[in-house]
Design a protein around this nucleic acid. Structure first.
Length: 680
DNA sequence: GGTTATTATTTTTTT
DNA sequence: AATAATAACC
């Protein structure tokens, strides 16, 4: 029998890995070897304790974290059969459960999943019907609906819940919209992201046997990033542990950064209250950052009041101190940072060990420009989602309509793409027809294609197309079916017609091709399970299970890494450039105006600092364009008030503070020499 | 039915 | 500044 060796763990880590039965809370500070501990724990359970891998469930928050865990576990268990192991995000687990059980809630198993833009268009429709002189903010109403769902409140319960204020016009509008919205979704056989958790919970509540079934299957449950779980997720965990109490949660209250999504930090703070006899294990030794970086991080986070007491420490001593660079504007900022990265790259530092972290996605733009100009490879993590690109969305809408013709939103999107002579007027006629006969738009078209004699042929062709491809997708391999479909509707010609500039066309076509490639990879990876519904789900949940294959041939993981502070959680790099550390950006303007929860912004800053192993450079700009206007900016409050402690060195890069007088003269001379040369 | 011009609105973070 | 929604046009 194989023995899995746990001696590579320190004492508390080992204790965490060996405490298998009963509730366990692992308070894991930044860089304390959290993932290592979890993966070793799993390996210990499977190899040493002979626990069948299908009884183990590990849930994490983001796909990236899930993938990292998956790979590291796989590496530890390479000689053992661990295929039954379930490593998932809450959402992917939810979809998996709903796929096999959702009929009990009156949906068909081929439900569509709607993203934010789909949601917004239904809200817009609802608001148009909700006539009341005043106009409402769609986004505000949608986020209220999200808040309600994340607190387990259905459209029926809203008006009698504490979330409802009958004197607040926005709530009255939300009340109407919420009903309208849910009715539409049910009619379309569609669910939104929040429904994935909401409906899974509903399913468990109404069918205790199903909840017990899953609880019996998952006898050992681990939840990563527990500080970022919300109320729904907490209740799901309660159901999953209804037949046992083998629950191990891992988290760090200092890294709670998802409250905007309903995350409730009291889940972790009250764990010992909610789960009696819970063992608490603290991991406080940081293996990642140098002492100086860690000291700065501790200094920044210290200002937050409501924290679990802990002292992170590191053995890594160095002389180098974090920098704060003062820049003129974002162009200057990106220029200086990229120059620096270029030099580091030339002297042998691997590019993928350097990361640029920022608060909001749009900050990436000037850095991308500079990197492209300097011909340095880079990867932007997150940003515009693959499925948010117009062409991908079109194709996805087709796939969803083929899967679920009741999905009116998808159907309407692609009805006239490419142009097939079914415009708004015809659509209107069929919408009326569908409403009158209480049938879906697609059924209306199929049952009565001749409402308008002139359009009959077009309608028939469209209905036949969808029906035909339902068969094709059933009977041929996914990538073949996708390619054949794109060919049949001559989508590439349509793309060509849409744009006049050749470069644009080229890029859009590439998106279409990578969509096909992604289907191919999915097929190679999943084989028999590469069904249409699984593929659609994968794209929508941004689940990159097949990422490994991707990086094998495309070197996706190389190059400088560009990502938001949010998506940086759980990752680490040798060098971190934390850019835009300014008031109104970090902390973000929105949180300052609302006058609330600045502590979360501070945690965000803390997360950024603690990503760095050896070198940390922060920067801020003196001016920045916003709403098309130039605005003066200031250093973030998170770095003010302790300048004399020398925890970081501030340099004015505009005034070349980092150079000696002699170097400055040399620089100026070189600058003018180069200028003269370029004039020749 | 489709295209273009004008106006209004927008900027946080992710599943 | 850039984009989406609406109105006016062909």
């Amino acid at each position: 029998m194989n023995i899995f060796d746990l001696s590579g763990l320190n004492h508390p880590q080992r204790q965490a890995a060996e405490t298998i039965d009963g509730p366990v809370l692992i308070l894991a500070g930044a860089g304390s070897g959290k993932t290592r501990t979890i993966t070793y724990r799993i390996a210990h359970m499977v190899t040493n304790l002979q626990i069948p891998s299908e009884n183990i469930l590990a849930v994490s928050f983001t796909n990236k974290a899930a993938m990292e865990m998956r790979e590291r576990t796989k590496a530890l268990l390479k000689n053992t059969n661990s295929t039954g192991l379930t490593l998932a995000t809450f959402h992917s687990l939810g979809v998996r459960i709903l796929r096999s059980e959702i009929t009990k809630l009156g949906y068909s198993r081929f439900f569509s999943i709607y993203d934010t833009s789909d949601q917004l268009s239904i809200v817009r429709e609802a608001l148009r019907r909700y006539k009341s002189g005043k106009s409402y903010d769609r986004k505000q109403i949608l986020s209220k609906i999200g808040l309600l769902k994340n607190n387990g409140i259905s459209e029926v319960d809203f008006s009698s819940s504490p979330f409802f204020d009958h004197e607040e016009p926005n709530d009255l509008a939300t009340e109407y919209v919420y009903h309208y919205y849910q009715n539409k979704l049910r009619f379309y056989n569609a669910i939104d992201f929040d429904d994935i958790l909401f409906l899974t919970l509903k399913l468990f509540r109404e069918n205790n046997d199903i909840a017990r079934k899953y609880s019996k299957r998952f006898k050992y449950i681990m939840v990563d990033e527990y500080q970022d779980t919300n109320h729904l997720q907490f209740e799901l965990i309660l159901f999953l542990t209804s037949t046992h109490d083998n629950l191990c949660v891992v988290g760090d209250d200092d890294q709670a950064i998802y409250s905007f999504r309903g995350a409730d930090i009291s889940n972790i703070l009250d764990f010992e209250k909610n789960f009696k006899k819970a063992k608490v294990i603290k991991l406080e030794e940081n293996y990642r950052s140098t002492e100086n970086i860690l000291n700065l991080a501790n200094r920044v986070i210290k200002e937050n009041k409501k924290r679990k007491p802990k002292t992170l420490w590191s053995r890594k001593k160095t002389d180098s101190i974090p920098y704060l660079w003062k820049m003129a504007d974002p162009e200057h900022e990106s220029q200086i940072v990229i120059e620096e990265i270029k030099k580091a790259g030339q002297s042998g530092h691997p590019l993928h060990e350097m990361a640029i972290l920022y608060r909001s996605n749009q900050q990436a733009v000037p850095f991308e420009d500079q990197l492209r100009m300097a011909d340095i490879p880079y990867t932007v993590i997150g940003g515009q989602k693959f499925y948010e690109k117009k062409e991908v969305k079109d194709l996805m809408a087709y796939l969803m309509a083929i899967l679920n013709p009741n999905d009116e939103l998808s159907l309407r999107r692609i009805l006239n793409i490419p142009n097939r002579g079914i415009g708004n007027v015809t659509l209107k006629k069929y919408l009326d027809e569908s409403q009158q006969n209480k049938m879906s738009l697609f059924s209306a078209m199929e049952k009565n294609p001749a409402i308008d004699r002139n359009r009959e042929k077009h309608i028939r062709t469209f209905v036949t197309l969808i029906r035909k491809y339902q068969g094709v997708f059933k009977n041929s391999p996914l990538p073949e079916a996708v390619a054949r479909f794109i060919d049949e509707i001559d989508y590439m010609s349509f793309v060509e017609k849409q744009y006049d500039n050749a470069k644009q066309i080229d890029m859009r076509k590439k998106d279409v091709l990578s969509f096909v490639e992604s289907a191919e990879r999915f097929f190679n990876f999943k084989q028999k399970e590469a069904t249409l519904e699984n593929f659609v789900e994968k794209v929508l949940l941004q689940d990159s299970q097949d990422k490994k294959d991707e990086s094998d041939d495309a070197d996706a993981a190389t190059g400088v890494q560009l990502l938001t502070l949010h998506s940086s959680k759980g990752l680490e790099f040798n060098t971190v450039y934390l850019v835009g550390v300014e008031e109104e950006l970090l902390p973000h303007k929105r949180t300052i105006v609302q006058g609330e929860d600045i502590s979360e912004e501070r945690r965000l800053c803390y997360v950024g600092i603690t990503r760095a192993r050896d070198r940390l450079v922060m920067s801020y700009c003196c001016k920045r364009k916003m709403y098309g206007q130039e605005i003066t900016r200031h250093k973030s409050r998170f770095l003010t008030g302790f300048e004399e402690d020398n925890m970081y060195i501030e340099q004015n890069r505009e005034a070349m503070d980092h150079l000696t007088g002699e170097e400055k003269e040399q620089f100026k001379k070189n600058f003018f020499d180069n200028l003269l040369k370029s004039l020749d």
